[in-house]
């Protein structure tokens, strides 16, 4: 029997996407487990962003179905389950033309959370992201790093099962990258599955436990399970 802890949150089957008849990718199976941190690498144009948007239910694949909670859903029904459980963050997260606090409040308001609970949760998440000093500022004027942290806080407040990050540290300086990685690592430790699409995966390998490469329409797992020389515990590392 499958270990409860390793039962996938979502399992995608037979995903296929074409553009103008040309195959972009074909993925027989892809699973998201709680606490996973998957780095998805690949050259420009291989379909990383498209794949993430399909996983998040934002665009439909040409073929494919999703397994969630032991049930099987095909598109378009599957997209509702994806959207309910997965949050996608753009390379440069979109900030609504309102304050940082109102941006964080956005999803909770949609979910019908009562106002006092929303305020409390917003304050908690602002503190979690070290964003208290930005609470009243218009989110549009923030730096890339600050926007990324607000986007992570805005996602965290909704307690998603999985978070998909598209090149999260592109156009960020080293310090901003460190802050973003720190928050991503915290989200992972809370049991949220993280998928990070990265053009240059070297920098984020240290926080990842799986490395996948999208190449020529195929998803190649580059994770290798090794047994350490010093102890018998298996650990995951990556092919160079």
């Amino acid at each position: 029997m499958m270990d409860q802890a390793r039962r996938p949150l979502l399992r995608y089957h037979e995903l296929e996407k074409r553009f103008s008849g040309d195959l972009l990718f074909e993925i027989p199976e892809f699973s998201l487990h709680g606490g996973d941190c998957i780095v998805l690498s690949g050259r420009n144009g291989t379909g990383k962003t498209t794949l993430l948007k399909i996983l998040a239910g934002l665009i439909a694949p040409d073929k494919g179905w999703v397994e969630c909670g032991g049930k099987r859903y095909s598109w378009p029904k599957a997209k509702d389950h994806c959207r309910r459980n997965v949050i996608y963050l753009h390379q440069q997260p979109y900030m609504f033309d309102r304050s940082v606090a109102a941006n964080i409040d956005f999803g909770m308001r949609l979910a019908g959370v009562p106002a006092p609970a929303r305020r409390r949760r917003t304050d908690e998440v602002l503190a979690w992201g070290g964003l208290e000093y930005l609470a009243g500022r218009n989110a549009r004027v923030l730096s890339c790093g600050e926007k990324q942290r607000v986007a992570l806080a805005r996602a965290k407040v909704l307690s998603p099962k999985a978070l998909l990050l598209d090149e999260p540290t592109a156009s960020m300086d080293k310090e901003a990258c460190e802050k973003a990685y720190f928050l991503i690592k915290r989200l992972q430790s809370e049991g949220i599955a993280i998928v990070i699409a990265a053009h240059e995966p070297q920098a984020i390998r240290r926080i990842a436990n799986r490395l996948l490469q999208l190449d020529a329409g195929k998803l190649i797992d580059q994770t290798v399970l090794k047994v350490s020389d010093h102890d018998d515990a298996p650990r995951e590392c990556f092919r160079e």
Partner: peptide
């Protein structure tokens, strides 16, 4: 309008009609 507004609203749990009003607000 920036298409990311639409996608962000959807991924944060908005139904399509709510996402439409969000884009209208933007």
């Amino acid at each position: 309008a920036d298409r990311r507004a639409w996608e962000t609203a959807l991924t944060l749990g908005a139904a399509p009609w709510r996402a439409m009003f969000t884009v209208m607000h933007e």
